[in-house]
Nucleic acid binder design. Structure first.
Lengths: 228, 228, 228, 228
DNA sequence: TATGAATGAGTGTTCATTCAT
DNA sequence: TATGAATGAACACTCATTCAT
């Protein structure tokens, strides 16, 4: 459970729970405050990362944005990277769940246009609601752990795309599949940039455009009845 | 007061040369040497920016790479940003020339496949030869002036794409043209990333793929005889 | 104003107990628990001081080692220095008791070799069993109060040595006595370092060597029948 | 050449030495200033290390003591440890030279009392003139490089003592030699502490006392004609 | 004109100490 | 009483920028 204070503080045992009635509200309170702080800090970090990128974000700035002192930040996170890792990790988990739903087997049987809707809509929606996710996953030259997360997400997405693609174009060579998947992911990312900086009808227009691009790119490649 | 940043204070520009009549050889020498220094520094900066990105590049590192002292660097550039602006500007000018050739009127009359070749090949070649250009134009969280350069390049490209597109699809609304142009540019950038990180046959494959995507995306939109 | 150091503000000492008459059991309990806590904390501090030295020992580490929160630690000790002072004081008292036994008048009548055995053996044993004592008493750059403890121990030992020496060499000048006593104490400390870092036979060898050194050093000085 | 500024700045070659007459004074001046700063900083560090020990010495305090900004310190030393290493190294070299002279073969032939004078006097003198040496070589738990230096000095001294001892007591077992050498070194260190905190006649008295201790300790062990 | 020493505010991080609960 | 979150000054170290030479 990352984001939890680091101290050992094993229940000392001898403090003796004087109240006979079962509860746990008092300790809950404590943890509750800590968890609120963690959330505050992560939210502040999300904001700062979004505005300045990971490298230029200073821990003091994050603490200031969260309205706490630098020391407080370090009571919950051992270092700057851990903040990004935790933030990225939380979002990543949600993203994985999203992707799990998006790439549901039943979706993959459908004709291409429906499949694109089924896959892209939740992913886009998630990114619109969590712009920090995108900011973090952009990073290049970012230290170890967070880059690994970035890489894991990238590979995971690429793998899913490749496998779907394989069911559509069973005759394609692995190299072709790799090229196409990379292009799809690249196109998606580029479009997501456009989608995120627009709102309302404009955003919808770019979403439609993305689907058009992918549909036209992929339709001629399909060699199975999916497209029917 | 040493160590105090002194704001932007950009050179007033244009390098002046108020004296039309030829002067002695000595000043020429000076200027020649100065220009050599500037080139040295810009080349060094290009290298450092490519390797580490703008934010992480230190002026001392650039000076060291150029083989001069930090003081010397500041004799030619008022601050770090100015180096990026100048470098970006020079590359931008070359890019504009490239684009001028790429978007030659005679090219724009040709059928789409040929047009894509004619336009994309030189632009891609330029970027492969000047990776610093791409590194600089990627900028996130980069200060004002250089972002303006980025924006200028972006708008310029967008304008050109839009105008070509207009000759292909005269009935499209301005909004539609804008969406499509933005998508084209986005797709181009995403593909360029893939192209730049690969070499040889792989690179060629991604170039081909880019053309395929754009061809399939644009072909159905064309309402003039170009596509024939 | 949290986070502000509040100076030395040592407990006024003596723990007071103004009420001579016995009170209820509850306060007793409290005190008993408190004393247990103090012992816990001192034991933890002894461990941490031994492992890392006084300066590098953090109060949080001591609290953690004792299994309590930092706040609890500060309920019993006003500051870090007070912990060292208390620990040093307790050990010092035990040391004094040891020394009292070691420097028993009956021992001082014996011939030098026996006297050295009688005096050194318990002192060495005590230090082997309480390595924290030595770690604390080594102090360099350690703050005032604890250095005072160090000094008190040092003077006390020096005084005892000097007085014994006086019975052996009644004709020596006070200055000579002081020099010799200081040398003896220095030799003892240096040897103790060697004794503490070795074990088993090696340790015994260094103990023997210490006695040899002192014996040879002192024997020629003795002007009374002790040495016979 | 430690302590020299870190920059690469290879002679640029094209700056062209316009003065025909051979010199090099101008660049000398530059280096001279730097070297003066290095000396200043090392002197300041020596003072701070002496007063507070290595661990508690802060780089900012050293810079302040030297009258420069923290940045300046870091222009000449890459980190705190390097300062100690450089300071220790310089003193160590001088110490080694001293020891070389002190342990001259011709000295080792002499009778023990003269040998003790010949060996101890220069070593003591050196330490009196360079108290920082002793402060640095005391450290325990000090980071890698400097502890290694400490260890190297310790071993070197121990080795020299052991070899001299071997010529005096050829029948002693290696274990006995090791014990005796360690005791000698320990006694020397303990006495040096006393010597350094005293001055004038007192200091001389402790020097004499040290020689007495060693003479009486070693004389009975000698099995060769040296002692005659 | 070139050098490189100098600056000082800034960074990430730690830790003795305090305070609300 | 015990907790652990909170504080803020300090530390080691960096870097854009300036200035004496």
């Amino acid at each position: 459970m990352p984001g939890t204070p680091k101290g050992k503080a094993a229940e000392t045992g001898e403090t003796g729970e004087t109240s006979g009635a079962g509860e746990g509200a008092a300790p809950r309170r404590r943890q509750a405050r800590g968890e609120r702080r963690v959330s505050q800090l992560l939210a502040a970090a999300a904001g700062v990362f979004c505005r300045t990128g990971y490298a230029a974000a200073s821990t003091n700035a994050i603490a200031r944005e969260a309205g706490v002192s630098p020391g407080t930040l370090y009571q919950f996170f051992p270092n700057k990277e851990a903040i990004a890792v935790e933030l990225g990790g939380q979002l990543l988990q949600q993203a994985h769940e999203m992707h799990g739903q998006a790439f549901l087997p039943e979706n993959l049987q459908r004709p291409l246009p429906e499949l694109l809707d089924a896959v892209l809509d939740p992913v886009i929606a998630f990114n619109c609601e969590n712009p920090a996710f995108w900011a973090l996953m952009h990073g290049s030259g970012i230290p170890g752990a967070i880059d690994q997360e970035h890489w894991k997400l990238h590979s995971s997405l690429l793998g899913r795309i490749e496998s779907v693609l394989h069911t559509f174009c069973p005759e394609s060579s692995p190299a072709e599949l790799a090229h196409t998947s990379n292009m799809i992911l690249g196109i998606f990312k580029a479009s997501l940039d456009l989608i995120l900086v627009h709102e309302g009808a404009e955003r919808e227009a770019y979403i439609a455009e993305l689907k058009t691009v992918l549909l036209r790119y992929l339709d001629p490649m399909i060699t199975t009845p999916h497209s029917g």
